[in-house]
Design a binder for these strands. Structure first.
Length: 761
DNA sequence: TTAGGGTTAG
């Protein structure tokens, strides 16, 4: 090696080239993509073979071989010159190749031309990496020896070296090789290769420098589709070290590519848009990206638009959704079944089911040649059916399932949507019939089917049917999950059957179905509601043991529960615990405490808590004032209650609602101030606050006390007019009062009015 | 494309 280094040190670029060693094609500026072949200079195969044969057989005596000298160096302009690249390559070993290089350098009658030497070295690099494929450091040594002698790297050598070093994870060495290449010869292929390694290695800044050179308007190496794909793949799946590339930069980059007529593939564009929509607070970057590609003439297809539509929908940018759909039509971007799915789903989510049906009918209504005609699939049918069921139009949903059969078969989801629709409409029988029907049809129910029916039964007072159904399904191999248990536990808590709820909770773990946070929350709430704070605390500690956290609402439930039990110390314990867990009390927490202190008659502390609430940046709400007003009413301080009410009304920051009026009217009536109560009802009318049954009950009770029949009749008429249903309290007041006053006829027609309105409703 | 829970004033 030292010998060759010495020889090479004396090698200089020489203007007068030996014709027979020249190889003009060696430095072809832009080899074809994707893999540039080694340059193939015009050569004489017979001559090359002859030379190699001599070199191989007279291993030790090249210097004195005249034949070799003649074949290599004679100037015969009629035949093509021998190729140094091919000869070197055919020598097979690095040692021989280097020795030959040395020989040429010292025996050539005049200095060999640089391109030929470059091509010879290209062959040496190839042999070296074949000989020692796992020794990139040896290759690097060869490269450093070589570059000391100012021989230009051929593009193939450079590509080869960059690839070898890059694959070995020596990206910095790849970069060194790249810097050795004459800038005018750094073609697109070499740059793409380096770019890929730099990005994979997380050298984002170096990568961007290479990329920037490609993206300038005047460049010998413009970006191509590969460049785009390398950059996009790296940016999309980037999770490595290295500088974070902002989303603005990504969009800017794509537009720079666009100037060179290079666009992301439809798949990449869709991935990019999805990413931009998911991460940002708005979809504006994704919007700009898509429009940039459309405007510069890139290939934009429905999936990319679908991604943006989804993002716009998530950010509730409805106008933009419409605008994009109009643009798709205008630009001839054909919507697919997913596009229609997004539109229909979106309309359904906002309960605009008639419009969803309209779109649905229009999309398939066109003739077969219509470019916008798309056949709906099962998912689309299911979306519409679910939309109909969610607004209580399950009969129409059922009809749609029959229509659906002409195009595609209903599946489990179809039935689940309909079963839920009928359950929510209290038609449990119909829901069960659908369940039987699906079984007959061979559509298998899944755990969602089970849960929908169990919940439907539970919510309509059929807990034992629900349990029976659950166990029956379990016997058939359809296991429940946390959702099933939530429905049942919640139902048993509401039915005040705490033992059964706890039993189910214990049963869960036996069934290898561990409770999730919602099961714990449900149980804590149920136990607190039942006044079983010790059990609730126990479940809370079990929950924490299982690795779940209590959240602010569940702390509020417990704090409220302890307050109702008059266990302020326990409430404070919870408060301290939630703050230790890093949770701040919210408005509900403060309202709970304000309500507790004011109801205990400690108005000083109540007001202090309220000041603290305000200083924490929380705003007292109608509930806060309601708690105070209620407590002042309870202690008979109606003046203070009315003062707060007037304060609320005048500042109108917190307009009083029906509950506030109900508290005041009830208290005023109970204190014999029926006239003021009546005037509050007028205030309600003026302010557009609707009275409800409780309002009328309180007022009627007050009127009964002063036996003001005429006023009572007026109110009864108002109730009927406003379709405000009387309840058992109303009937209790009126029955006794009106019968003793001989007004049974009035009572009868009042009740009848509701029977009529109930039947027409 | 389908299923579950809990909080404060009357």
């Amino acid at each position: 090696m030292s010998n060759i280094v010495r020889v090479l040190k004396h090698t200089t670029h020489h203007p007068s080239l030996l014709r027979y060693l020249s190889a003009d094609a060696t430095l072809s500026p832009t080899p074809p993509e994707p893999t540039p072949r080694p340059p193939t200079p015009p050569n004489n195969p017979t001559l090359t073979t002859q030379i190699v044969t001599i070199l191989q057989s007279n291993d030790n005596d090249w210097a004195n071989n005249d034949e070799l000298r003649r074949l290599l160096f004679s100037d015969d302009s009629l035949s093509p010159p021998p190729s140094l690249y091919k000869i070197t390559r055919d020598l097979g070993t690095t040692a021989k190749a280097l020795k030959f290089f040395d020989y040429v350098r010292s025996h050539s009658p005049s200095p060999p031309d640089p391109p030929s030497l470059s091509s010879a070295f290209e062959a040496i690099f190839e042999i070296a990496s074949r000989e020692q494929p796992n020794s990139p450091s040896n290759l690097f040594k060869l490269f450093t020896d070589f570059k000391e002698h100012n021989i230009a790297l051929t593009p193939s050598s450079a590509t080869h070296l960059i690839r070898c070093f890059g694959r070995a994870g020596m990206v910095d060495k790849s970069l060194l090789v790249y810097k050795e290449i004459d800038p005018d010869s750094r073609n697109t292929h070499v740059r793409n290769l380096l770019l890929d390694f730099l990005l994979r290695g997380g050298l984002v800044d170096d990568a961007f420098q290479v990329l920037d050179e490609m993206l300038v308007t005047e460049t010998v190496s413009p970006p191509n589709e590969n460049t785009m794909d390398i950059v996009m793949a790296a940016l999309l799946w980037r999770d490595r070290s290295g500088r974070r590339v902002s989303e603005e930069e990504i969009v800017e980059l794509v537009s720079k590519f666009g100037i060179h007529g290079v666009f992301p593939s439809p798949v990449r564009l869709t991935q990019l848009i999805t990413k931009l929509c998911r991460s940002g607070k708005s979809s504006s970057l994704a919007w700009n990206l898509l429009h940039n590609v459309i405007d510069s003439g890139g290939d934009v297809q429905a999936p990319s638009c679908n991604a943006l539509l989804t993002g716009l929908g998530r950010h509730q940018q409805f106008q933009k959704m419409n605008q994009l759909l109009a643009e798709m039509k205008e630009k001839g971007i054909r919507p697919d079944v997913i596009t229609f799915g997004i539109i229909v789903n979106h309309l359904c989510k906002f309960r605009r089911v008639d419009e969803a049906l309209e779109v649905f009918e229009k999309m398939s209504g066109g003739s077969e040649n219509d470019v916008f005609s798309v056949t709906p699939d099962t998912i689309l049918y299911n979306t519409v059916i679910d939309g109909l069921c969610k607004v209580g139009r399950q009969e129409k949903g059922l009809a749609l399932m029959e229509q659906m059969r002409l195009q595609c078969a209903p599946n489990t989801v179809t039935y689940n949507c309909l079963i839920d629709g009928f359950c929510k409409a209290s038609e449990i029988e119909r829901a069960s019939e659908l369940f039987d029907q699906m079984n007959k049809e061979g559509v298998s129910p899944n755990v969602i089917t089970l849960n929908t029916l169990v919940d439907g039964m539970c919510k309509h007072g059929r807990i034992s049917s629900a349990m029976e159904f659950f166990y029956e399904m379990q016997g058939k191999g359809l296991k429940g999950n946390a959702v099933t248990y939530t429905a049942l536990i919640s139902a048993f808590c509401n039915a005040n059957n705490i033992e059964k709820a706890m039993q189910l909770f214990t049963e869960m773990s036996k069934e290898e179905c561990s409770p999730d946070a919602i099961v714990y929350y449900t149980l804590i709430a149920g136990l607190t509601q039942a006044g079983r704070l010790n059990d609730a605390s126990f479940v809370a500690s079990e929950m924490k043991k299982a690795g779940f956290c209590l959240d602010v609402p569940s702390y509020n439930i417990l704090i409220g529960g302890f307050c109702r039990k008059n266990k302020l110390d326990k409430a404070y314990e919870m408060l301290a615990e939630m703050e230790r867990a890093g949770m701040k009390p919210d408005g509900v927490t403060y309202n709970t405490l304000i309500s507790y202190f004011s109801k205990s008659g400690d108005f000083t502390t109540a007001h202090r808590v309220m000041r603290k609430m305000i200083s924490e940046g929380l705003v007292p709400t109608v509930v806060t004032y309601g708690a105070l007003i209620h407590a002042y009413c309870l202690v008979g301080n109606l003046d203070e209650a009315m003062r707060i009410y007037r304060d609320m009304s005048s500042s109108s920051r917190v307009p009083p609602n029906t509950v506030i009026y109900n508290i005041l009217i009830d208290a005023l009536c109970k204190n014999g101030k029926v006239e003021i109560a009546l005037s509050l009802m007028d205030d309600m009318k003026d302010k557009g606050v609707r009275p409800n049954t409780t309002t009328f009950n309180a007022m009627l009770k007050g009127l009964q006390e002063i036996n003001s029949l005429e006023k009572a009749f007026e109110l009864m008429n108002k109730m009927t007019e406003q379709a405000c249903n009387p309840d058992y309290v109303t009937m209790e007041i009126l029955t006794g009062w009106l019968s003793s006053a001989g007004e049974t006829e009035k009572l009868r027609s009042f009740v009848q009015g509701y029977e009529v309105s109930a039947s027409t409703a």
